[in-house]
C-alpha cells in the first residue's frame, strides 16, 4: 500500500510536468493547427535560463522566473516571425519540419551557450519532504503540481473571461471568420506562440530543481508532452492536464507493478489502446489536419 502511494506520488510529479508541456502543445495547436516539435527545446531553454539567472547571477527567484518567461517567450516570438510567418504555403507538414529544424537549431545554440554539461538547481523552497503514510513527496513536487494546476486554471479563465482569450478562440475556430469580424488574427497567432513558449518555459523552470538541466533534455520531455496532449485530446486544456497526469501515473505504476525495463512500453501500449477506442483523445475530438 505504502508502495502504491509512493508510485502515485512519483507519477503525479512526472505527470504534472508532462501536463504543463502538453498544455503548451495544445494551446498552440488550438490557435494555429500546428504541432510545434521544438516545444521541448523551449522547455529546455526555460530550465537553462533559470540556471543562469537564478543559479549563476543570483537574481531573486520571482524576478528570475518572470525574466525567464520573458526571454523564452521572446525567442518564441522571433521563431514565429522569422520561421513560421515567412512560409509561403503553410501546409501542416512543412511547418512541422520547420519546427523539427528549429529544435535542432535551438539545441545547437544551447550547446554553444551553456556547454554540454548538465546543471542542477536547488529547490524553490528548502523544506524537508512531506510524509504521508510512509510515502514521501518533495516540496518541489508540490510546487510543480500547484503551479501546473494554477497555470491550467488561469488559462481556462483567460479563454473564458477575457476578450483577448475569446478572440483567440475565435481565431482557432476559423482564422478567416475571425479576421472578418475584426480580430487581428495574425496577432492572435503570434500571441499563441508567445504564450505557448512561455508556458513551456514555466514547465522547464519548475522541473529544473528535481531533474538535471542540459541542452539535450528537451527532446524526451517534448515527446512525452506531445503524447500527453494527444492522449487527452489535442486542443483541450483539461485534456492536456488529464493526459499528462494519466501518462505520468501509468509510467510509475508500470515501473512498480510490471517492470521498469518496460516502463515506456507499458505506457505506450496503453496510449495506443486508448487511441484505438477514442480516436480523438479522451476529451475533445477536434478533426485534425491531414498531410
Amino acid at each position: 500500500m505504502q508502495e502504491v502511494l509512493q508510485y502515485l506520488f512519483s507519477g503525479l510529479t512526472n505527470g504534472a510536468i508532462y501536463a504543463v508541456i502538453a498544455v503548451g502543445f495544445s494551446m498552440l495547436y488550438s490557435a494555429t493547427d500546428l504541432i510545434n516539435f521544438a516545444h521541448g527545446e523551449f522547455v529546455m531553454l526555460g530550465s537553462l535560463f533559470l540556471v543562469t539567472l537564478w543559479g549563476a547571477w543570483q537574481i531573486p527567484l520571482p524576478i528570475a522566473f518572470l525574466l525567464t518567461v520573458a526571454c523564452v517567450a521572446l525567442t518564441g516570438l522571433l521563431f514565429e516571425r522569422f520561421a513560421i510567418r515567412t512560409v509561403r504555403k503553410p501546409q501542416p507538414i512543412v511547418l512541422v519540419i520547420i519546427t523539427v529544424g528549429a529544435s535542432i537549431f535551438l539545441r545547437g545554440v544551447a550547446m554553444i551557450l551553456w556547454g554540454k554539461d548538465a546543471y542542477s538547481l536547488p529547490p524553490f523552497s528548502n523544506q524537508p519532504p512531506l510524509e504521508l503514510a510512509g510515502a514521501t513527496l518533495l516540496i518541489q513536487s508540490v510546487w510543480i503540481i500547484v503551479i501546473s494546476l494554477l497555470l491550467v486554471f488561469g488559462l481556462h479563465l483567460f479563454y473564458r473571461r477575457t476578450l483577448t482569450g475569446k478572440a483567440m478562440q475565435a481565431t482557432a475556430i476559423s482564422k478567416r471568420a475571425a479576421w472578418i469580424t475584426g480580430i487581428p488574427a495574425g496577432l492572435m497567432v503570434l500571441l499563441a506562440f508567445v504564450m505557448s513558449t512561455g508556458v513551456g518555459a514555466v514547465a522547464g523552470m519548475i522541473i529544473a530543481p528535481v531533474t538535471m538541466c542540459s541542452y539535450d533534455m528537451g527532446t524526451l520531455l517534448g515527446l512525452k508532452g506531445f503524447c500527453a496532449a494527444m492522449l487527452g485530446g489535442i486542443g483541450s486544456l483539461w485534456g492536456a492536464l488529464l493526459g499528462g497526469i494519466l501518462l505520468g501515473v501509468l509510467e510509475a505504476l508500470g515501473v512498480g507493478l510490471i517492470s521498469s525495463a518496460l516502463k515506456d512500453g507499458v505506457a505506450f501500449i496503453l496510449l495506443l489502446l486508448i487511441l484505438y477506442f477514442r480516436p480523438g483523445g479522451l476529451i475533445g475530438a477536434a478533426e485534425s489536419a491531414r498531410f
Binding site: Y29, I35, P92, L223, F226, C227, M230, I234, A261, L262, D264, G265, F268, I269, L271, L272, L275, Y276, P279, G280, G281, E287, S288, A289, R290, F291
Partner: peptide, 28 residues
C-alpha cells in the same frame, strides 16, 4: 489495421507509439 483508422496528428501519435514500442523491444 487499427492505427490507420486514425487521422492527422492522431495517426502521427499512433505510429510514434508503435515506433517507440519497437525500439523498446529491440533494446530489452
Amino acid at each position: 489495421l487499427p492505427t490507420l483508422k486514425l487521422s492527422g496528428y492522431y495517426l502521427g501519435m499512433g505510429t510514434l507509439g508503435f515506433g517507440m514500442i519497437g525500439f523498446i523491444v529491440f533494446r530489452e
